[in-house]
Design a protein around this nucleic acid. Sequence first.
DNA 1: CACCATGTTCCTTG
DNA 2: CCAAGGAACATGGT
Length: 282
Amino acid sequence: MPELPEVEVLVRHLRPCLEGCKIRHCEILRERTVRPERPETIRQRLCGLRVEEVRRRGKYIVVRLSGRGTGSASECLLHLGMTGRVWVEGMDRPLPAHAVMVWELDGRRLVFSDPRGFGWCGFDGSVLKRLGPEPLGRGFDAGVLARRLGRSRQAIKGRLLDQGVVAGLGNIYASESLWVARISPFRQARDLTSADCGRLVRAIRQVLRRAIRLGSSVPLDWAGTSADGLFYFGRKPGLESAVQERFAVYDRAGERCFRCGEEIRRAVQAGRSTYYCPGCQG
DNA sequence: CACCATGTTCCTTG
DNA sequence: CCAAGGAACATGGT
């Protein structure tokens, strides 16, 4: 469920559930999920700590924990990969088949479930240092984007997926942003004018804000048992109306462009699907 | 069975 | 040395 908007909505949801809670036990059901530390190290580092703050950076969930007595603060990172989910539930429920980690709180528990197993939990904060600016923060404008794109001959779509250029865009919202900015995903990054960069920055912000607003306004199934993709893939019966026209191009190959009526196309760039409108993204 | 999927890292190739 | 592309990770849905 993970691009910036989904993680942001999730973090807002988790904040009141977690902040102030003490972690009584930590159970790791899939060892690969925790890294680079060993499972036993993670368990020891988490046990007995209190959650001081839950925040987001890019697609990462950052959990700040207060130390045992001596004030040794630490930050635990969670990344959801492609299919990771995190929620807090009562202790009476059966654990899902793909639970990879569980934190026992007082009378409740946090469940990290991840069928595909690309998600991650650990204390190595170095990944955060490599991230580009927050697209919704002040440090992101046309000049910054242009500088980060540099002289790259790579297609702009691919550059937007690089978390060092801007933090939090993924395959869906990269396509969406380019459509809003009317920029072809195949343009070489170095060829974008400053006007293009300005439109792209505004488009990215608009697309992400709208997705966060939408995700905050729809009743979400955090555990995702009904397979609604939390808030992707609103084609599920009963949810389509709420999320209709959520995506202008993503997963809409063969359908008509809302702006010019052309048929949306799908292409493959660097092994990943790109959706675009050949009519208005010249 | 074939192909597709919201991500990141590592390796190879040019 | 760098840029770019592809494989790998692993599982489920269509």
